[in-house]
Design a protein around this nucleic acid. Structure first.
Lengths: 143, 143
DNA sequence: CCTAAATAGTTGATTTTGTCAACTATTTTA
DNA sequence: TAAAATAGTTGACAAAATCAACTATTTAGG
């Protein structure tokens, strides 16, 4: 095992965990938890998704998810309708309110990203995004 | 605000949150929480650190940290001694047991990293680590 | 085609994680 | 040298997450 590589990756993970923590911190003074926001994100990006799919992608307990969805529905961010194909399942959708709220939440986080980028030159910003794209490319298995 | 850049960074964060989640998942079937492991990490890397310093770097409530330290001390991973310079403070150290345990915890996580790297060629691995180093360099403010 | 196993989702009970306020004991500031 | 700030602890509580048991439906195998 190439321990040096593994160590570097561990170091990066620790470093980047802090960055993500910084950017997530302002979600925390919204009325929603990170898990709840993440659920909204999943539905935003895949209208009509089933709870069990969210459960798989988030690695979250189905009972916990069920309660999160109940709250989001109560708050009017999410609606569900019975699946035609599977009588046990519901299809989840963001309401207009849900979409608006999702964008509102992201704007606060975006401001934080902008603050993070502030000290960088235009060239550095471009380069950063290039690097990120490349990491994604390498770590995303070919289809 | 360069929205395209911000969007890319948001996408990367979401992507990398999943990676970190994957790598952290096997910490979760250790007897320690991520917060506890992180505290051990901080002490490992700075023997003699004070609780208040950990509190600042982890953005964790001091009462919560106090209880984590109590548990780690009870388990024999951490010891503390009164600071000579500040009569209110304690200096924290990992015991040999603590160091051993910290390495044991990391080994499980390392195996997961190796698994993640498996599908990559040697060249891709090198490149990945290069990219990570560059991101760190860009995002770390000059001293 | 019909029973057994698997899956989607809910609910109740509980544990774990994290926060808040109040407190003691020191140290710093002005 | 009194007032404010800081290090850390404790008790009470709230939020987040898990576990087991359950209903209802669907899928798989004999």
């Amino acid at each position: 095992m190439e321990q040096a590589l593994v160590d570097e990756i561990r170091a990066f993970n620790r470093f980047y965990t802090d960055i993500i923590g910084l950017l997530n911190r302002n979600f925390l003074d919204s009325p929603y938890s990170l898990a709840e926001i993440r659920v909204v994100y999943e539905i935003f990006h895949q209208q009509g998704i089933m709870a069990s799919e969210i459960m798989d992608s988030m690695h979250i307990d189905k009972s916990y998810l069920s309660r999160i969805l109940k709250k989001l529905e109560k708050d009017g961010l999410v609606t569900r309708e019975k699946s035609g194909e599977d009588g046990r399942a519901y299809l989840l959708f963001l309401t207009e309110t849900g979409k608006t709220e999702f964008n509102r939440l992201n704007r606060a986080s975006d401001r934080q990203v902008v603050r993070l980028l502030e000290p960088l030159s235009g060239k550095e910003k471009e380069r950063l995004v290039e690097l990120m794209k490349n990491i994604k490319r390498i770590l995303t298995p070919e289809t």
